[in-house]
Design a protein around this nucleic acid. Structure first.
Lengths: 149, 149
DNA sequence: CATATATCAGACATTTCTATCTGAATATTA
DNA sequence: TAATATTCAGATAGAAATGTCTGATATATG
């Protein structure tokens, strides 16, 4: 199977979008998120804990507890979320799996893949949670997809 | 971990490049390929069998046996190899993992990711084994990387 | 203060991917 | 024809990713 993000990373991104679409500052619990987005609850819990450790989310235990954004959504790029879960190996590792692959000793796809990888990085680095949150607000389709009101 | 191709697909692509750089029509055995490219031999065997089943390689048992390209290298796009090993789900599946994601019901990254995915596909579909084979012939660096003479 | 509700931490289970093993089938060569 | 070298097929093993369970800890609320 070829893919870009691990399943755990997909869950993290989905949950971030869901949380970002809530009333700012409100804590959202994983029970609600896992039901709405159909993500296994304990696994989602572990996943969001990673985001808390990376200061992307903050959490509160107990009744009315849950998760909220730890900073302004305009300061959270998608790349931060991907980095917290999957890391950044994809930026440097060889697309063909050659252990030594660099500008000096490139693999046959090095050049072309480098260009595509840069575009992916630019997109992840430039797109913030605030950007997407606005898109969601403006689009009924997106609210439906995220099972929002 | 985020990646594009499975490890098995990386092995397949590496082996295809190695085979394509050999004298045309000559059978190359997996013992040689696995040693040169540092790929586990039994796993490489299973992998190349998939390419034989897809008519990308042809094989011969017995002494002097091995694998060779099943057709002209200009007719084998990288995409065919990827398709044989990893399949084509990445062309249609949602980058955020939403089960239903299409132009009509897009996820927040649908548009931007679509463009990048198309570029990846174009690259894989346009680039043939012959193209890369030529690059390898013309570059001492690449011959070194593939452990060729 | 007691109770209920949440995250959190660590162990455990399951599934998927990667890797190995064994022997059968087939072709070359002497 | 015998010996050898190779792919091929199927079973098994190991590793990594995903998913589950149990209980501890913290917080809100009556």
């Amino acid at each position: 199977m070829s893919l870009i993000f691990s399943r755990q990373c997909e869950y993290a991104l989905q949950a971030m979008l869901y949380i970002s679409a809530q009333e700012p500052g409100k804590f959202t619990n994983i029970n609600e998120i896992s039901e709405r987005l159909d993500i296994p609850m304990p696994f989602l819990g572990k996943t969001l804990q990673l985001l808390v450790q990376d200061r992307i989310l903050s959490s509160l235990k107990g009744p009315r507890g849950g998760f909220k954004l730890a900073k302004d959504p305009s300061e959270i790029a998608l790349f931060h979320v991907v980095d917290a879960i999957d890391g950044t190996d994809f930026l440097t590792s060889c697309v063909l799996g050659f252990p030594e692959c660099s500008t000096k000793t490139p693999c046959p796809m090095h050049q072309e893949w480098g260009g595509l990888r840069d575009r992916v990085f630019q997109m992840l680095a430039n797109k913030t949670i605030a950007d997407i949150s606005k898109e969601i607000t403006d689009s009924k389709q997106l609210r439906t997809k995220l099972k929002l009101g």
